[in-house]
């Protein structure tokens, strides 16, 4: 009797068990992504770790690349700064930038009150270019770093010309620009040396002979004399180099 009861109970339970098993098996999603066991989970973790390592390597590579790019950018900036410095130096050397410093100012102006010498009086207007050229050349060779005539900066391509007009009058042109009396020569440089050469050359007495007043003043302060930068056309403005292989 007991065995019979057991068998029927077991049959009932077995039926239920079979039903539940089928239900469970058919209900399980067929997807392989389902983590059904510890081993699956571990495999997945290992895969993720491997992927993580790969990604870390990628990050390291990209960081190195980024550092390289930044370094090259830095080099370009440094090069650019160096080129800018060079350009500034060249501009200063070429006289394109205004300069200031201790120096002298020579002011030349007609002065009829000066003693009249028939041999020399009035000659200055005929030789002004030569006289002024002589003065600036002497100054340049004796301590002058920058010179301007009536605010026309003298550079390597500068010209000092005396141009005779149709009426017979003469006009002094510096850098192609006409300048009028009084002629003011500003020179930044060694004051003593510049004054010395002017004295040795007898500039003042010679000008005085031509009834020209020549007043030389010294400005020893750090900003004693300011010479403007050259603002005229540069040689390369119009004339271009002929290309070797056109």
């Amino acid at each position: 009797m007991q065995r019979r009861t057991f068998m029927w109970s077991l049959t009932g339970i077995s039926s239920l068990l079979g039903f539940m098993l089928t239900l469970q098996l058919t209900s399980r999603p067929p997807s392989a992504t389902t983590i059904s066991s510890y081993i699956d989970l571990r495999t997945q973790v290992e895969e993720q770790l491997a992927e993580h390592r790969t990604l870390l390597q990628d990050i390291a590579k990209l960081n190195a690349q980024l550092a390289q790019f930044k370094a090259s950018e830095g080099n370009q900036q440094a090069m650019r700064a160096a080129l800018m410095r060079d350009a500034a130096t060249v501009a200063a050397e070429a006289g394109l930038t205004p300069v200031t410093g201790p120096g002298i100012v020579i002011r030349i102006q007609d002065d009829p009150k000066l003693p009249f010498d028939p041999q020399f009086a009035g000659q200055f207007s005929k030789v002004a270019d030569q006289e002024i050229s002589q003065i600036v050349n002497d100054l340049f060779s004796n301590g002058a770093k920058a010179i301007s005539i009536n605010d026309q900066r003298l550079v390597t391509t500068s010209s000092i010309r005396l141009v005779t007009g149709l009426g017979g009058g003469t006009t002094l042109q510096v850098n192609g620009y006409p300048v009028a009396m009084p002629y003011v020569i500003k020179a930044v440089g060694d004051i003593e040396q510049m004054r010395a050469v002017l004295t040795v050359d007898n500039v003042v007495p010679l000008l005085n002979l031509m009834q020209e007043d020549c007043l030389i003043t010294s400005h020893p302060g750090a900003h004693g004399v300011t010479v403007p930068g050259y603002n005229g056309p540069l040689p390369g403005t119009w004339a271009k180099e002929v290309a070797a292989n056109p």
């Binding site: 068998m7 029927w8 049959t11 039926s15 068990l17 079979g18 098993l21 058919t26």
Partner: peptide, 17 residues
Amino acid sequence: MIWLPVLGLILGAAIGL
């Protein structure tokens, strides 16, 4: 008699299917 629980198991599985 022993086959009864096995039959029950199969029956249950069949019902589930």
